[in-house]
């Protein structure tokens, strides 16, 4: 469960002065739900997910992740969080198994539990055939599977995906989408941020459209269609952020 209340972040930029990257965002996301954050580049999606992941300090507002406050208990939040971004990379000089083991250890898994979890995750994601190959010898699709394994090895109840399919081919992207759906079916809370309409349409139970740091609309795909009177989701989106068609 993720609950966000008036979360805001502003930066001081030398050229632009005070920049409000996220400006008073509130929503709730329940277990067994995929919640989509849809917005163009620079809308504030990454800043928002980074605040939830406790690597950026909010300037105002609060949020709870899996029942822990992101300001007061950041380490507990991180313990219950799986985090995957499209720009994430792996340690090139370590093998897939070493990378995932490292993160299992960072999450405090006992050696026995880590071994069991790694075996299970590697089987689900079909990593076993290349598990002991160094990461710099893996293909992009294989790397993305290892990244997923790294993000979920500790069985987090909450998952944050920030544009996880960027740079992937159709097949690999479909694998990621299938995996996100599986996380929801296991009862996890999933927040999925993207700028790709089709992914949102196919995957998300509810959607928040973000534009210029603010939430422009929240609802299911059908609700948003009704609200705008548009059929094609691209048009729905453009209407919601106030663009002329």
């Amino acid at each position: 469960m993720v609950a966000i209340d008036g979360l805001a972040k502003s930066f001081r930029d030398r050229k632009r002065g005070e920049v409000r990257a996220v400006d008073g965002v509130s929503f709730e996301c329940r277990p067994g739900e995929i919640f989509g954050l849809l917005g163009p580049n620079g809308a504030g999606k990454t800043t928002l997910t980074r605040m939830l992941a406790t690597i950026l300090q909010p300037t105002a507002g609060s949020a709870q992740v899996a029942g822990y406050d992101i300001r007061r208990e950041p380490e507990e939040v991180r313990r219950h969080l799986g985090y995957l971004t499209g720009s994430a990379a792996l340690y090139e000089r370590l093998t897939a198994r070493e990378v995932v083991t490292y993160f299992a250890e960072l999450h405090g898994l006992s050696p026995k539990r880590a071994a069991n979890r790694i075996e299970a995750v590697f089987r689900t994601l079909d990593i076993e055939p290349f598990a002991d190959r160094r990461c710099d010898r893996l293909s992009t699709g294989q790397r993305q599977r290892v990244s997923i394994a790294r993000a979920i090895v500790h069985e987090p109840p909450v998952l944050l995906f920030d544009e996880p399919t960027s740079g992937l081919d159709v097949l690999s992207a479909r694998g990621v989408v299938r995996f996100i759906r599986q996380c929801r079916d296991e009862g996890r809370t999933v927040i999925f941020s993207t700028h790709i309409m089709s992914e949102v349409e196919a995957l998300c139970d509810r959607i928040a459209v973000i534009y210029q740091g603010k939430i422009a609309a929240i609802g299911t795909v059908d609700e948003l269609r009704e609200q705008t009177g548009e059929r094609a989701f691209e048009n729905v989106f453009l209407r919601l952020i106030g663009e002329e068609l």
Binding site: A53, T54, I55, E75, R78, R79, L81, Y83, L84, T85, S87, A88, A89, L90, Y91, E92, F103, L106, H107, G108, S147, R150, A151
Partner: peptide, 13 residues
């Protein structure tokens, strides 16, 4: 290389 972010999101202080 883009590996730092994941490390910062781990429970390690």
């Amino acid at each position: 290389r883009g590996t730092l972010e994941a490390l910062l999101v781990s429970p390690a202080s």
